[in-house]
Every structure is written in C-alpha cells, then in structure tokens.
C-alpha cells in the first residue's frame, strides 16, 4: 500500500504541495489528475524517494520513504517501476540494454539466459517486436519510446508501477494504445499503479480511483463516477475543459476516417 500523509513541498517561494494526502491500496490503479505544472510529477517522485517532502510522510509497503537509508531505498526502488514522462531511456544503450538494466535482482541480472528471456517477455507485454531490442532510443518513435520505458519499468517485476504522464505528447491513437497497455498490465501483472495525467478520458478508462490535484491540494478523490458527479466548481471546470478537448479530438479522428 502507498500512503501519502500530509505532504508539503515548496521550491523557493512556490508552494507545490500543501498538506497532500492520498492512499493507494494494493492492486488498485489510481489516476492523479491535474493541470500541467500543478505538482503531480513532484508527488510521484516523493513516492519512490527521488524527492523528499518538506513536511509529512510517504509510506510504501509499511516503510517511511523519506527516512530510509541509501541501501534501504535502493531495495525499495527495486519494487517500484517508474515510467518517465519522456521515457528517460539511456540513449547510449540499446533497447535490450535499457530493459536489462530494469532487472533489479542481482542474481537474475547476471544471468544472460534469464535476461534474454525477460527482455523478450517485456517487449511482448508492451506489444513490441523482439527485433526492437537491437535498436537505439534515437531510432524509435515517441510511442515506442514510451512503451520501451514501460518495458524497462516492469522488467524487475515490480509490485508498484508509477506512470508519469504516459500519454502526453502522443496522438490519440497511440494514447489509446498506452491506456490499453496500462489496463492489460494491471490485469496480467496485478500491480498497484499510480497514473499521473492531465488526460481525463484516458484516466477514467484505466483508473479504479481518481484524485484531482488543484492548487497544491487534493481537490477530489473517489471513483471516476464520484468525481464526475462532484459539484466542486474547480473539479467541474477541469473535467469539462479536458472532456471538451477529448470530444474535439474524437470528432477530428472521425472526420479524418470519413475523409480516408
């Protein structure tokens, strides 16, 4: 279970998180929504200890993340897969080497046979052909980079998966592919996931619960239906604007299909 308890974080005079609390139960997928620059990624980085809170606590698997020592946090991180917004693939390494680096268990990581099989398996899980393994990140499209990023994150068979804007910068078709992939991984691997996004449509599709981060605080937290039914003006404003964009995109796609 992941528990974010009253976490506050500021950068100089900019308060990014102000007493934020959030709970993600085992096996659950929670979408963390909010406008760009509101601090969603910052909150995500607190969960795997890439950032430390100014106040409050983050508890993962019963361990207080900010208080962990170097070795302990490295061990905890091997249980948490992190999918970065722009993939963050190591550009000097091939796709194979990138995914292999995600195998965090020391014994498995040194076993070539296991690594070859695991890399193939991860590529299959993210719908990529085995020959992609030989390519370098510069040779991949944006959607493929995201999928390789996901493959690397699941290579160590993590218990938790944190997605940082997995569909941002992708066209609607590729965004749908990634959303379907998140759903599939949840069902096949049974991981606990936190998906940071500003894409309402996709988030409502993949999430069991949705939380809205607005002006440094959690403004709404509940099932997609509960959040949609919220009377909070800020929640409505955010949802309407994003759903409107979704409708415009869907209309555009339909028009393109008719034209074709």
């Amino acid at each position: 279970m992941i528990q974010v308890i009253n976490v506050s974080k500021r950068f100089l005079h900019n308060i990014v998180l102000d007493g934020v609390s959030l709970e993600v139960r085992d096996g659950e997928t929670v979408a963390l929504l909010g406008p760009s620059g509101v601090g969603k990624s910052v909150l995500l980085k607190h969960i795997n200890g890439l950032m430390k809170p100014d106040a409050g606590d983050v508890i993962v698997d019963g361990l207080s993340v900010p208080r962990l020592k170097r070795k302990e946090i490295q061990q905890l991180r091997s249980k948490i897969g992190y999918v970065f917004q722009y993939g963050a693939l190591f550009d000097s390494m091939s796709v194979y080497e990138n995914i292999r680096l995600g195998i965090t268990d020391e014994t498995c990581a040194n076993d070539d046979g296991y690594c070859n099989d695991r890399v193939k398996e991860c590529l299959r899980l993210v719908n990529l052909a085995p020959d992609v393994a030989e390519k370098y990140p510069a040779e991949l499209s944006g959607g493929m980079k995201k999928r390789v990023g996901i493959a690397r994150a699941i290579a160590g068979a993590p218990k938790y998966l944190l997605y940082d804007e997995p569909t941002s910068g992708l066209d609607p078709v590729n965004a749908d592919v990634i959303d379907a992939l998140i759903e599939r991984l949840r069902d096949e691997l049974g991981v606990t996931s936190v998906v940071v996004s500003h894409d309402v449509r996709g988030s409502f599709r993949v999430a069991d619960r949705v939380a809205l981060l607005w002006q440094a605080k959690i403004r709404a937290d509940g099932t997609p239906e509960q959040v949609l039914a919220s009377q909070d003006a800020a929640v409505q404003q955010f949802l309407e604007r994003d759903l409107e964009m979704g409708l415009i995109q869907a209309e555009g796609e339909a028009r393109a299909k008719r034209g074709a």
Binding site: L50, R77, S78, I80, Y82, A88, L89, L101, R152
Partner: peptide
C-alpha cells in the same frame, strides 16, 4: 536519465 537510474535502484 539520472532519475531513471536512481529509480531502478
């Protein structure tokens, strides 16, 4: 990429 390396333990 440095954050990614850290996140992989």
């Amino acid at each position: 990429q440095i954050d990614a390396l850290e996140s992989l333990g």
